[in-house]
């Protein structure tokens, strides 16, 4: 039986005259990977930040693990992990010092090395965040979302700008985190990524949800309607060729 862990009801967000989110409603179930898909400016990040209690809503209701964002933002913050799009970290600190800082901010004791081990960054413990590669930065960002052992983590375009190896490596990490029982809400531009990772996806366009279902069901419905790809579908694509030729190992380390 699916238990809802996030409930969004009739959410509206206005910036002056512009309505960024137009009355959206959806649920995220416990333990699933839920994808918010859509073009830039569709309102994915705004929706995410309202749920994360980082942005004020104009109207509507949002519940996270039973707490309303209006009355229990502190409770929610303690139950979620947040990765922001393009966020930096405190300057001049190395990774284990950054984890120490976050552990103080959450009021939770963590061993930096254990956490870094989860994201395969133990050898970078003494490096500065700025000195990491793109894939390492994203892995570290994900590590910081796990510090408070959250029930839900939010990942905002975690794979944007990564090379195929780093991207697939991150997929594995995200699947491992879900395996340990954490619910994941993710935004992405990449449909192949959503197809591999997400149990359910919602398509967001111009501030509205225009469809919400499992990737398989979306595809089956489209095919049943008589849709056919212009090009004959092959059993592999060019990215498979790239990975096959260059190897699966991460290039960044």
């Amino acid at each position: 039986m699916l238990q809802s862990i996030i409930t969004v009801k009739n959410l509206v967000k206005k910036y002056g005259d512009f309505t960024a989110i137009k009355d959206i409603s959806f649920e995220v179930f416990e333990g699933e990977i839920f994808g918010l898909l859509g073009p830039n400016g569709a309102g994915k990040t705004t929706t995410l930040e309202i749920i994360e209690t980082l942005r004020e809503k104009t109207s509507g209701e949002v519940y996270v693990d039973g707490f309303s964002i209006d009355t229990g933002p502190e409770q929610i913050k303690r139950r979620i992990g947040v990765q922001l799009q393009s966020a930096g970290y405190y300057p001049n600190l190395n990774l284990s010092e950054l984890i120490e800082l976050f552990s103080g901010l959450y009021g939770i004791d963590v061993k930096p090395m254990e956490l870094l081990e989860k994201v395969a960054l133990t050898d970078k413990a003494k490096s500065k965040y700025k000195a990491l590669s793109g894939g390492q930065k994203q892995r570290f960002s994900i590590a910081t979302t796990l510090i408070n052992q959250p029930k839900i983590i939010f990942l905002d375009e975690p794979t944007t700008g990564l090379d195929p190896q780093a991207r697939r490596n991150l997929w594995n990490l995200i699947q491992d985190i879900r395996q340990s029982g954490t619910t994941i809400v993710i935004t992405t531009h990449y449909m192949d990524e959503a197809e591999v990772l997400c149990d359910r996806v919602a398509f967001v366009d111009s501030g509205k949800i225009i469809g919400i279902d499992t990737p398989d069901h979306f595809i089956d419905t489209l095919v049943a309607s008589g849709f056919e790809r212009k090009k004959e579908v092959k059993k592999a694509n060019l990215e498979d060729v790239f990975i096959h030729l260059t190897g699966k190992e991460w290039r960044e380390d």
Binding site: L54, K77, V82, L84, A87, G88, P91, L105
Partner: peptide
Amino acid sequence: SLRITLVIKRFFATP
């Protein structure tokens, strides 16, 4: 710099 690099925003996601 904490404001521009969103370090403060990330802090706000903690209690």
